[in-house]
Simulated scan of single mutants.
Amino acid sequence: MELFASIRRNSLGLAIFAVLTAGLIAITHQLTDHTIKNNILDAQIAAFNEILPADLYDNDLTTDTAILPADPLLGSETDIKIHIARKNGAVTGIIFETIAPRGYNGNLDMLVAIDKTGVVTGSRVISHKETPGLGDKVDLKKSNWILSFANTSLDQPNLKGWAVKKDGGEFDQFTGATITPRAVVRAVKNTLTYFDQHKDTLLAY
């Protein structure tokens, strides 16, 4: 009898502990979820402000969005989100959440901002798995290489120039790492091409 009583007491204690732990986790999640979402939103806004001049828009880029169907030029087999920049109601540019396939260690997630005239105002690699010290130089925290796409277009450089120098183009590659910058150059060029092919639709949002 004492053994059974001890088991019951231990079981009750474990049950109470489990309930209290679950409750504590739930409360912690509720308290931190809002903060986490705000931090993600702040980081997104900061990234947008880095690649799109503030005088080009007066709307909320985080909520003024649209979904584009999958397209090889955007590097994804699933839908792609765009953020629409407006000034006084008129579309002034598009930020694409595009993908650079076939980096050295896989795909790279990117933001590419293009104004209504088809000029890249800025781009960023926001997620990648590239090798530290080599391919990770696509990250602005590691080098300024990604800034070389600002003020480019399909005409500047010309189509032949849209490649790394090793392939006869105008963009630098990294010492010991050509695959990753090649993928990013191709992705920015393809995003520009997509914009050019769908310009009328994009600017009519």
Rank of each mutant, 00 (worst) to 15 (best):
M1L: 11
M1D: 12
E2L: 06
R9T: 00
N10C: 10
S11R: 05
L12F: 13
L12D: 11
L12Q: 12
L12R: 14
L12W: 13
G13H: 02
A15S: 13
A15W: 03
A15N: 00
I16Q: 02
F17V: 09
V19N: 01
V19E: 04
L24H: 08
I25G: 00
A26D: 10
A26M: 10
I27F: 11
T28D: 13
T32R: 06
T32K: 06
T32F: 10
D33W: 03
I40W: 12
I45W: 08
I45H: 07
I45Y: 04
A46R: 13
A47D: 15
F48T: 06
F48N: 08
F48H: 15
N49P: 04
E50Y: 06
I51E: 02
P53T: 01
P53V: 08
A54F: 00
L56D: 04
L56I: 00
N59M: 09
N59T: 00
D60R: 11
D60V: 11
L61R: 05
T62K: 14
T63Y: 09
T63S: 14
D64L: 12
A66L: 13
I67G: 03
A70Q: 09
D71N: 15
D71A: 06
L73H: 11
L74A: 06
E77N: 14
K81Q: 15
I82W: 00
H83N: 10
H83Q: 04
A85R: 00
K87H: 13
G89D: 08
A90Q: 13
T92L: 05
G93N: 07
I95L: 10
I99L: 12
A100D: 13
R102L: 13
G103C: 06
N105L: 15
N105I: 04
M110R: 02
M110Q: 05
L111M: 12
I114C: 11
V119N: 05
V120F: 05
V120C: 08
S123L: 00
R124Q: 14
V125D: 04
K129Y: 14
E130A: 12
P132T: 02
G135D: 04
K137I: 01
K141A: 15
K141V: 02
I146Q: 11
N151E: 13
N151K: 11
T152K: 10
T152P: 05
T152Y: 05
L154I: 09
L154A: 10
P157Q: 09
K160A: 14
G161V: 08
W162D: 06
V164P: 03
K166T: 09
G169Q: 10
E170D: 15
F171K: 07
D172M: 06
D172T: 05
F174A: 11
T175C: 08
T175F: 06
G176Y: 09
T180L: 06
A183C: 11
A183D: 14
V184I: 15
V184Y: 00
V185R: 12
V185E: 04
R186Y: 08
A187R: 03
V188D: 09
V188F: 03
K189N: 11
K189W: 14
F195M: 10
H198D: 10
H198T: 09
H198C: 07
D200T: 15
A204F: 03
